[in-house]
């Protein structure tokens, strides 16, 4: 049974990457969009551009993993293709994990490209590679699970896009990408602590600029928590489809 689940998960992820993710518009959009935002901010507030790199990576991860992920499930549900997967001899969590895998692999790929560009521009100094790998992986898992949750919570593709943007855009401005959370008013700081992007930016900052493992561990734990909770919620919604 476990072997069936793992096989199904792998091939569902692979199929999604081939059918939906690795298409030129997605790749260019995934890279250009975060760069455009960061550049706009940098032009308006010139200063230490290097400090914006963690935010750039976090945004790339957020949009790279969740943009298509938020659409894929609801799209396949609308055209009936999801039923093929529900009929396959795998359990629901494995099906959902396969969907997450596609989003994660795509997000990780474009983040790697952005990371290489950032390193080429700003150089590589004081990087905690293990922490960086963990930060990127857990952020990708949390954001991909967020996309999956959005996708199962709605019934139309346009609703998924609306809901995803409704969640992501405020998060972008409150999650410490442009302004450190500590400098925000207390009320906004409290809101920021409820957002996965905040922890992604913090742990990426720690990984790139020599931060302490103790602080970063809490961020990693928070990201893992978001990934697990959002995955469980999405799986719960899906289970209702076969009742």
């Amino acid at each position: 049974m476990l072997a069936d689940d793992l096989r199904g998960m792998f091939y569902i992820g692979l199929k999604d990457l081939r059918a939906y993710y690795f298409k030129p518009p997605n790749i260019s959009w995934g890279i250009l969009f975060p760069f455009a935002f960061i550049l706009a901010f940098a032009i308006r507030n010139p200063g230490d551009l290097r400090a914006l790199v963690p935010g750039l990576l976090a945004l790339t991860l957020l949009f790279g993993t969740s943009s298509m992920e938020a659409i894929v499930i609801v799209f396949e549900r609308r055209i009936g293709a999801l039923e093929r997967l529900l009929l396959a001899p795998i359990r629901l969590p494995a099906l959902l994990a396969g969907k997450l895998l596609g989003g994660m692999v795509f997000g990780l790929t474009i983040t790697l490209i952005v990371l290489i560009i950032a390193f080429a521009i700003f150089g590589v100094t004081n990087v905690n590679w293990i922490l960086l790998a963990l930060a990127i992986l857990l952020s990708a898992a949390a954001f991909s699970a967020l996309g999956a949750f959005v996708s199962v919570a709605v019934t139309e593709v346009f609703e998924a896009q609306t809901l995803a943007n409704f969640i992501r855009f405020p998060m972008m401005f409150l999650g410490g990408v442009f302004v450190p959370v500590d400098l925000m008013p207390l009320a906004l700081q409290i809101v920021a602590r409820a957002l996965p992007l905040t922890y992604a930016v913090e742990v990426l900052r720690a990984a790139l600029f020599g931060g302490a493992w103790t602080d970063a561990a809490l961020d990693l734990l928070a990201l893992a928590g978001f990934a697990i909770i959002l995955f469980a919620l999405a799986a719960r919604v899906m289970r209702r489809w076969v009742e």
Partner: peptide, 24 residues
């Protein structure tokens, strides 16, 4: 099912191969 529900983006052969991958 009543609705033909394979994947628009995949070729005829790739759709069959994916079905076989899912079923081991």
């Amino acid at each position: 099912p009543e609705q033909s529900n394979l994947y628009d983006e995949l070729s005829a052969l790739d759709n069959l191969v994916f079905a076989m991958q899912l079923y081991g």
